[in-house]
Simulated scan of single mutants.
Amino acid sequence: MPPRAAASAAKRTRTSASTAKTPAKTKDAGAKDEPPETAAPMFARTPQIKMLVGAHVPSDGKGVSNCIANTVSIGGNAFALFVKSQRRWVAPPLKTEEITKFKDMAAEHKYDLHKHCLPHGSYLINLANADDEKHEKALASFLDELKRCEQLGIGLYNFHPGSTLGLDKKAALERLAGSINSAISQTKFIKIILENMAGHGNLIGSTWEDLRDVIAMVDNKDRVGVCVDTCHTFAAGYDIRTEETFAKVWDDFDRIIGLKYLSSMHLNDSKAPLGSNRDLHQNIGLGFLGLESFRVLMNTKHLEGLPLILETPDKDDIMTWAKEIKLLEWLVGKKADDPEVVKKTAELSALGAKERASEQDKMDKKAVKADKKKQSTLVGKKRKAESDE
Rank of each mutant, 00 (worst) to 15 (best):
S387T: 14
S263F: 04
R212A: 02
R45N: 06
R383F: 14
A236L: 07
D132V: 15
E97T: 15
L211E: 02
P273H: 00
E97A: 15
R87D: 09
A336Y: 08
P23T: 11
A106N: 08
A247V: 08
A5Y: 14
A235T: 12
K374W: 08
I309G: 07
L327P: 09
W330Q: 11
W330I: 07
L310E: 02
R175F: 10
K384L: 14
R295A: 09
V342G: 04
K271Q: 05
G287E: 05
V64W: 00
R45C: 03
N181R: 01
G237V: 10
I154N: 02
K25I: 11
A78P: 00
D131M: 06
P58K: 02
P36Q: 10
L328E: 09
V342D: 02
E329L: 05
T26S: 09
A247N: 10
F288C: 09
R356G: 04
L94G: 06
Y238K: 13
L308K: 05
P41H: 01
S141T: 15
K191T: 04
Q360E: 13
R356E: 07
K50P: 00
Q375R: 10
G54E: 01
T164E: 04
T230A: 04
K147Q: 13
A128G: 03
L156R: 03
I190T: 10
L139F: 15
S73I: 00
P273D: 06
R45H: 03
K271F: 00
K373R: 11
K134W: 11
A235I: 12
P58N: 03
T320A: 01
I184W: 12
V249L: 03
A272P: 02
K381F: 14
A7K: 15
G199K: 05
I68H: 01
K134G: 06
A17F: 13
T233C: 14
K354H: 12
I184K: 08
A236R: 12
W321I: 03
G162P: 01
L152V: 08
D338A: 07
E347G: 04
P3A: 12
V90Q: 10
T242S: 08
K315T: 11
T345R: 08
G237F: 12
